[in-house]
Design a protein around this nucleic acid. Structure first.
Lengths: 153, 153
DNA sequence: TATGAAAAGGGGTTGCT
DNA sequence: AGCAACCCCTTTTCATA
């Protein structure tokens, strides 16, 4: 919340798109000095605008051929029920994304697994076995048309 | 595809989790020499296992308060219909993820917008106005429980 | 040929103007 | 905000098995 000038937006766009750019590259793209660019990045980091830097890997090349979109409803919304579900979500690395939703389902999950068998095993073990989970509807991903981490800024 | 030893897995996990780690950090975590670590990373990059390095930004801090999960069905699956939809998906930055699904709906989309009004505008303009789109069911994200780019390896 | 060590170079970091 | 020095990290080269 401040001066949202063009250079700062340019900077954000650049670091979003490519985390390996050098300060020289970034300052050129943003049209600001190397010093200001560096200081701005520090500011963005301490303000939490920059969450983290990561390396994106190719699931297919790492034997994670299966991606599933699962919709879940719980039996109730008591605090303990919700907390128990949330803890499964945070603990299991197969669950890559999870959102509480408005509408017919309580949650949407994006899950990655090696194959159908390992997904079946994961699902039975961590979701279906849980008495608090009422329904799970799984849709298999046939094709990934887009996966971007770049926010529309 | 070859010797998938523990050190290589450790390396992949480390670069996934933190894209800002130095070679010294990475080689220590993986338990291999700096040289081998460097060479392995080069290999992973040219093999396409490493897709890209990015910086993750906080949507809330950038006035993108709204996240929507939308499910779409098309009127038909003729090549041109599918291609036209795919081009909208690839062009619009608000659409951050899109997957072709098995089951009741053809596609699932994750969309980010500033607020309900701008989402409504985007949706009307790019989805509902498209004659090839039969239905769009939007679920608003009430809470993000998890968003991870780390594959379960 | 593959691996590790250590030199050489470039870029990030810091202080000063 | 810009400049420049420093230092660390990346990258290359060389030596060894």
């Amino acid at each position: 919340m401040k001066e949202s000038g063009n250079p700062h937006r340019k900077l954000l766009q650049s670091i979003q798109a490519d985390g390996s750019l050098s300060l020289a590259d970034l300052s050129e793209k943003a049209g600001m000095s190397q010093s200001s660019t560096w200081r701005k990045i520090q500011e963005l980091e301490s303000d939490g605008v920059i969450r983290k830097r990561v390396t994106l890997l190719d699931p297919g090349k790492l034997d994670l051929k299966l991606c599933v979109i699962a919709h879940v409803t719980l039996e109730d919304h008591h605090e303990e029920t919700v907390a128990s579900f949330a803890s499964v979500v945070s603990e299991r690395p197969e669950i890559m994304e999870c959102y509480a939703l408005s509408g017919a389902f309580d949650y949407m999950l994006k899950i990655r697994a090696r194959d159908v068998e390992s997904y079946e095993a994961f699902m039975t073990h961590y979701l279906l076995r849980n008495r608090r989970v009422r329904t799970v509807v799984s849709s298999f991903v046939l094709r990934e048309l887009k996966f971007s981490t770049e926010l529309p800024i």
